[in-house]
Structures are given as C-alpha cells and as structure tokens.
Design a protein around this nucleic acid. Structure first.
Length: 501
RNA sequence: GGUUCCGUGGCCGAGUGGCUAGGCUGAGCUCUGCAAAAGCUCCUACAGCGGUUCGAAUCCGCUCGGAACCUCCA
C-alpha cells in the first residue's frame, strides 16, 4: 500500500479555513504551485521561511509516494506599487539606482536567490517560470477575460471589473473581504483614477515613454498586472484545475484573491483546490519586512554582523529553528531562540551519525515492549507530518528517537532489544525524515576532513595513554583539544567520539 | 475605522474538551579514573474575569495586551 494511502494527508485550506483531507485531482499526481520572489533585491529570512515551508510540502508529498510537479515562479517583471499609476516599479527603481538594465537587476537577484536556496537546502522546483517569459500567455488571458466581459480597457491599461464579476461570481471569499467595506476605505484615494471602481485592479498596465521594461500588446506598450502571472503560469503548467497553491500570508489579499478572480474570469474555474498560507517571521513580535527595515539577510546571519545577533549562525541552524514551529504560526526570530536551536540541531545530527554506523546483528526482539515502541515511533513520524505538515510535532517524535538511539549507543539498551527488521525500518525512517523530509544535513567543510584525521590520531594516542593509566597525558590531550574547541566524549566500551564547536 | 489572528512553564514553541509535546536553560541521580557526552528524574504552564460541561489551556462571553491584512511585501 502506498504511504499516502496509509497516512492520508490533512491540509488546512485557507479557503474555508478548515483542516481537510487532501484528495488530489489525479492521484498519484499532485500539482503544487507556490509564489516565488520578486527579484528586485536580496531575499531575507522572512522570505525564506515561506520557501522552506513549501519545500517541506514538496519533500513530504514526494516522500510518501506522490508524483509532485512543483511550480514556483520568479517575478521578474516590474509592477507598480499601486494601480492608480503613481506607484513605483521596484525593478525599474533598482535598475535606475544601480544604472543597470532591468534584466540585469533581475538576473543578479535571481542568481542570488538560487544560491541562498542551495545553502538552505531548498530543493529547486520542477518548473521555475518567469513572468517575462510568459508575456504572450498573459496577453492571451487578458483577452479572454475581456471577451468574457469581466475587464475593460482605459488609456492603454486593462482593469478587472470587480463589480461586473460579482454579478456572477463571488469575490473576497479567500480573504474574507467585504467589497463594500473595502470601497469605504479607499473612496477618497484617487478621484482621477482610471478605474471605474476603486477595488478594480490592473491586469495590463500601460506605461509612460521613459519606462524601460515594456512589451507591446493590443492595448499599447505596457507591463502585465502583478496578479496575472501566477494565474497564467499556474494553469499553464498544472492545468485549469490543480491541487495546491501556496504563498505567504501577506499575499492572501489582494494577490491570491485577484488570482482566483482572474482564473474564474478567464476559465470559469477557481483553479486551486487547496490554498495554503505560511505565516510571518517576526522580530520582537513584528513582521520581518524590507519596508520596516527589520529584516535579516542570509549573510548577516552567517557572519553575525547584525545588531540583534551576538554571533553568526549556520543555515541548518536556521532551517531547524524554522521547523520547530508550525508553518501557519508566526515565529519570532531572536538570538536566544537561535542558540537553543543550534544545540538541538547538533544533538539531532549527532544521533544521525550514530545510527548511520549502527548495525543489527540479526535475530528476534529481546524486548517486545521496546520493539513495539520503536514501531510506534516510526509511524508517528508519518502521522505528525500528514497532520498538516506539522514539523514541530515531527521533531518531537524524532527527539524521542534520538533518546532511543543514544540508549543503544551508551549500552542502556541493546539493538538486540528490537527485531532486525524493526531496526532497519527505524533507521530508515529516522534518517529519511531528518534528511529527506525535513531537509536537514550535516554542515562540514573540506578542511574538516583533514582536521578529523588529525583528531583521530590524537584520540588513538589518548587511548594508549589511558590503557597505560597515564591520566596526566590523557587529560592533557583532552583539555588542550577542548581549549581549541574539540570536545572528546569517552564511550563505555573505550570508543571515543568528538564534536567540533 | 473594517476584517482576521494570537496571548502556553526561566526562554523558544506544539497541542485545541479528559491522557508527559519537544528543544534550550537550571537542579539532582546513574554511568565514568576524573570530566564531557548520554540516559533518567524534577522545576507540571496555559493573559484576567465570568459562563457552558461530570470535566476547559482547549468551547462561549467580556476585559486587558500584542500582531497581520485592508498600499509593494514571503
């Protein structure tokens, strides 16, 4: 039986807000779309949380046997920060500031984004489409929406007609917006607005003469509306109806709301079956964002060169830290929390190294009770992950497993307590969840191998000193290594382990 | 102002009607030549007030505090 049938996945669907059983449209295939970055500057750790969250979704669904096509876009076409026409185009702004072509800006930060993903062990998506690579398709979708009567052209721009749309469909269901209230709030904004209605949004935006990024269209030269690319690329690669669409909570409105309206407006279907929104990374309880100026860049994290950090932290520490909370909760970023995460992460990796080299001599379980516990822990990993990708709960289970592994190692219990087949499954499950599902990996550099060799040599010398009861020498080796940041750990059977700070 | 969410032990953070989450920290015990590591135990908490219930951190109401969205943002 497939794992996904044995451990059915439940997802909290933002559309409706309830936890639902996940039933793909065409199992074992799953279509997953998540919103990628706008590449006008460096991604920060807040952005990264969302990418990590959907990396986990992708990894887990794949792990339990689904054939997932994962699409994550790159927004490389500039968008005005407001639809009324006085907004700033971030990419254009950056290009002018750095005296670069907009596509140079885009290239630079796309490459940077990929590098950061690699460092944080975020798996590349199956397809990573760009907005500028799908201008033709976007124009076609605009035409279709106009043809269906849900959009109008004005001065070279095309707007989605929300009022007209609402005569036949609902708008605001995903984000729980009431359109009349929205209009109350925006009434006095722009009187000379081209839009018929303040809640209308651009699906094609005509641009002025001096705007660098521009494409020809039936309505004149311009740029696609921000919400359009996701509607277009999602349906192009995953079908008119697909399974999961994810993104940060802050995209729920207006971005995802508009996206859904566009899909209905063009094809008569909302396209997405399950909407997932990951919550914000916060700093002192406040959302981490570029505009608030409280964001952390990856390199600031590694070097510790940031007012709120006492020292640097590794990418895997941060990944572990993020996985300790559920994706739908806010998570507060702080020095103390990172220190705690670092220790926990090391403990987990140590257990990985331990069990990797551990073998079962064969035979039946000598301790049926422990044998049963081990079996339960294995399935508990799947149960917790299938419960709306609850990495926090899964980590708790994995730490239970760490205790059992350390028991085997220290001799508190023997691997012979459990059956050979259970041991094999236990080992595979533990390593599989840590590495493949959670994407946590050891962080070693090339020079580590040399260092390791040297330390092992010293360990051999110390073993000799200890058997000779030359404790003065053995202690000196241990203490001097300790001073250098190498901690030796004497095992019960004379084996010696070490960790490097 | 509108909409929505949150408030958990020293810290971080799961849980959402009865059963020890977990990580980090602190204390103790075991193991050890001594340490370290590891295992075990303990510090047993749910903002406040009221209600529903045999039973509430969990449901309902009010109060206080914080946040997000309504403008670009993951």
């Amino acid at each position: 039986m497939e794992l996904y049938k044995k451990y059915p996945v439940k997802i909290t669907n933002s559309l409706g807000g309830k936890k639902e059983e996940f039933k793909p449209i065409k199992p074992p295939f799953v279509g997953l779309y998540s919103c990628g970055p706008t590449v006008y500057n460096e991604v920060h750790l807040g952005n990264l949380r969302t990418f990590t969250a959907f990396d986990i979704v992708y990894r887990y669904l794949t792990f339990i046997g689904y054939k997932v096509r994962y699409v994550r876009n790159i927004t490389d076409a500039g968008h005005l920060t407001n639809d009324a026409g006085q907004g700033v185009d971030r990419i254009e702004e950056r290009a002018k500031l750095e005296q670069l072509e907009p596509m140079e800006v885009v290239q630079k930060y796309t490459v940077g984004f990929h590098e950061v993903c690699r460092i944080f062990n975020i798996i590349p998506p199956s397809i990573e489409p760009t907005a500028t690579g799908h201008i033709v398709e976007q124009i076609e979708m605009v035409k279709q929406i106009i043809a269906n009567g849900f959009a109008y052209e004005k001065n070279g721009s095309v707007y989605f007609d929300v009022r007209k749309f609402m005569e036949k469909h609902e708008y605001g269901v995903l984000s729980g917006r009431n359109i009349d209230e929205l209009m109350e709030g925006s009434r006095e904004l722009n009187r000379q607005d081209e839009k018929k209605n303040p809640v209308d949004f651009a699906i094609w935006k005509g641009v002025s003469e001096n705007h660098i990024q521009r494409w020809p269209s039936p309505w004149g030269e311009g740029i696609p509306g921000w919400h359009l690319e996701c509607s277009v690329m999602g349906t192009k690669y995953l079908g008119k109806e697909f399974d999961i669409h994810g993104g940060g909570m802050d995209l729920k409105f207006p971005h995802h709301e508009c996206e859904m309206a566009q899909n209905i407006g063009a094809y008569g279907t909302p396209a997405v079956k399950y909407w997932m929104h990951s919550n914000m990374l916060t700093v002192n309880g406040q959302k981490m964002s570029k505009s608030l100026g409280n964001s952390f860049l990856p390199r600031e994290l590694f070097t510790g060169n940031h007012p709120l950090l006492e020292r640097g932290f590794t990418p895997m520490t941060v990944r572990f830290f993020m996985l300790q909370s559920h994706y739908a909760s806010t998570l507060d970023f702080s020095n103390e929390a990172l220190v705690a995460a670092e220790k926990g992460f090391k403990k987990l990796m140590q257990a990985c190294a331990t069990i990797k080299n551990m073998e079962h001599p064969g035979g039946k379980a000598e301790n049926p009770e422990l044998d049963k516990t081990i079996l339960e822990l294995n399935s508990e990993c799947f149960i917790t992950m299938s419960d709306d990708f609850n990495t926090a709960k899964t980590l708790a289970v994995l730490f239970e497993m760490v205790n059992r592994i350390n028991d085997f190692k220290s001799g508190n219990s023997s691997v012979k307590s459990i059956s050979e087949s259970n041991f094999k499954e236990f080992k595979e499950t533990f390593l599989g969840f840590v590495k493949d599902v959670l994407g946590l990996q050891e962080e070693t550099s090339q020079s580590d191998n040399l260092v390791k060799g040297v330390i092992e040599l010293l360990i051999e010398l110390r073993k000799k000193a200890r058997t000779d009861k030359n404790f003065a020498l053995s202690d000196r080796i241990r203490d001097d290594l300790k001073a250098l940041g190498v901690q030796l750990k004497d095992g019960k059977d004379g084996d010696i382990d070490f960790t490097i700070d």
